[in-house]
Computed example of a mutant assay.
Amino acid sequence: MITAITTFQLPQAITREEARRIFLSTAPKYLDAAGLFRKCYILSADGRTAGGVYLWHSRAEAEAMYTEDWRVFVREKYGTEPSVTYFDTPVVVDNLTHEILSDA
């Protein structure tokens, strides 16, 4: 499994409620994305940094999401350039399903 963390510095701070509205407007784009287990939208306490934490089945599936079209979408929606950082995720504790997942 792969965790991808996307972040972008916003041109101006937004409130939690503004972020919630924006995030809800983009959330359907990620439903049924191939290989995506979960996406968590994130917003810094000062409202200046936003992004997402994604858990993917594979790096290839993650990279298939973060195309130039995705970058254009983020630039147009938020007015800033996104960054993407990948992490290997060998184990996940899921308290909703009460499972410990491993990619081995």
Rank of each mutant, 00 (worst) to 15 (best):
M1L: 13
I2V: 14
T3K: 14
T7I: 12
T7Y: 01
F8R: 05
F8H: 08
Q9E: 06
Q9V: 09
Q9M: 13
Q9T: 04
P11Q: 03
Q12C: 08
Q12D: 02
Q12Y: 00
A13P: 00
A13I: 07
I14Q: 00
I14H: 01
T15V: 09
R16A: 02
A19N: 11
A19Q: 08
R20I: 02
R20M: 04
R20E: 00
R21A: 04
I22N: 06
I22F: 01
I22E: 08
I22M: 15
F23N: 14
F23K: 15
L24T: 11
L24S: 11
T26Y: 01
T26G: 05
P28I: 12
Y30P: 12
A33Q: 10
A33V: 13
A33K: 15
A33W: 02
A33F: 00
A33P: 04
A33G: 03
G35T: 05
L36H: 02
L36P: 13
K39D: 06
K39N: 06
C40S: 07
C40T: 14
Y41D: 12
S44F: 02
A45D: 09
A45N: 08
D46Y: 04
G47E: 04
G47A: 02
R48P: 01
A50Q: 06
A50C: 05
A50F: 00
A50T: 01
G51L: 10
G52D: 07
G52W: 07
G52Y: 02
V53L: 09
W56P: 08
W56G: 08
W56N: 08
H57R: 15
S58K: 14
A60H: 11
E61H: 05
E63W: 09
E63N: 10
E63F: 01
A64V: 11
M65W: 06
M65D: 04
M65S: 00
M65C: 05
T67N: 03
D69S: 06
D69R: 13
W70A: 08
W70M: 05
W70E: 06
R71G: 03
R71L: 06
F73W: 14
F73C: 13
V74H: 03
V74T: 07
R75S: 09
R75P: 01
R75T: 04
E76Q: 14
K77S: 01
Y78E: 03
G79A: 03
G79S: 08
G79H: 01
G79Q: 01
G79K: 12
G79N: 08
T80Y: 00
E81N: 07
E81Y: 02
E81D: 09
P82W: 03
P82I: 07
S83K: 10
S83A: 11
V84P: 07
V84C: 07
V84E: 12
Y86N: 10
F87Q: 15
F87S: 15
F87M: 15
F87P: 03
D88N: 13
D88F: 04
T89F: 06
V91F: 08
V91P: 11
V91H: 04
V92K: 15
V92T: 07
V93K: 11
V93W: 04
V93H: 05
D94F: 00
D94Y: 03
N95D: 10
N95Q: 12
L96I: 13
T97E: 05
T97K: 12
T97M: 13
T97V: 09
E99F: 12
I100F: 01
L101N: 06
S102N: 13
S102M: 11
S102Y: 04
D103G: 14
D103I: 14
A104E: 09
